Amino acid sequence: MFTIEHDFDATVITLIDEGGSYLQEDVTISAFEDVVTLEQVDPRRDEVVRLTLSMGQVRDLAAALNLPEGSYRLARREG
């Protein structure tokens, strides 16, 4: 399950783990104009862990989800 919210400066997606016997904490993804952040509570430390990706890293990740094992460099489009 997931939710989508459109805030003033970001789109926020929350991924909610369902099913299975061992559930992970919710993941919150905030897409800003120039970066994307992923946040998840670490239950062992009881604090939020944040990962920040540049838009280039997000494009690479999206492409990587559909490619076989290997090393790649995406060609950047002009304009």
Rank of each mutant, 00 (worst) to 15 (best):
Y72S: 06
D34Q: 14
L51T: 08
M55W: 06
E18M: 04
L74E: 01
N66F: 11
I29A: 01
S21V: 11
M55L: 11
Q57W: 11
P43H: 03
T52Y: 09
G19F: 03
L61S: 06
H6R: 15
E69P: 14
A63K: 07
Y22T: 03
I4E: 00
T11Q: 10
T37K: 14
R73H: 08
R44A: 13
D60I: 08
S30A: 15
A10P: 00
A63D: 04
D42T: 12
V41G: 04
Y72P: 01
V12I: 09
D7H: 14
M55G: 00
M55E: 02
V41S: 06
R73P: 03
L15W: 01
E5L: 09
E18S: 11
D46L: 14
E5N: 06
E78S: 13
L74N: 01
D42M: 09
E78D: 10
P43T: 01
R59T: 15
D26N: 15
A75H: 08
I29L: 14
E33P: 05
V27Q: 09
E18R: 10
R59A: 07
Q40A: 15
G19P: 01
I29F: 00
S71L: 10
L65A: 15
F32H: 15
V12L: 12
T3S: 14
L65K: 10
G20C: 02
A10K: 12
F32V: 03
E69K: 15
V36I: 13
R77A: 14
A31D: 06
Q57C: 14
L74Q: 06
Y22E: 02
V49Y: 02
L67W: 11
L38K: 02
E69C: 15
D60A: 06
T37W: 08
R44W: 02
G70M: 05
Q40S: 12
E18K: 10
T52H: 09
A64E: 08
E5F: 03
R50V: 04
T28Y: 02
G79Y: 05
D34K: 13
I16W: 11
V41Q: 04
A64H: 12
L38F: 00
R73F: 08
P43Y: 01
V41M: 08
F2H: 13
R44V: 12
D26K: 14
F32A: 12
V36W: 02
N66P: 06
M1V: 12
S54W: 05
V35T: 11
D34C: 04
R59S: 09
A75M: 03
L23V: 08
G20P: 00
Q40D: 04
D7F: 13
E78T: 09
E5D: 04
E33K: 15
A31K: 12
V27H: 04
D60P: 03
I4S: 00
V35I: 10
D42E: 06
T14E: 10
V36A: 07
M55C: 11
V27W: 04
L67H: 10
L38M: 05
L53I: 09
V58D: 00
A64G: 15
Q24K: 14
E5C: 05
R77E: 11
G19I: 00
I29E: 01
L67I: 09
V48H: 02
D42A: 06
F32P: 05
G56L: 09
V58P: 00
D60F: 02
R77N: 08
Q57T: 12
T14F: 07
E5H: 00
G20V: 02
S21H: 08
T14L: 10
D46R: 15
S71P: 05
A62V: 14
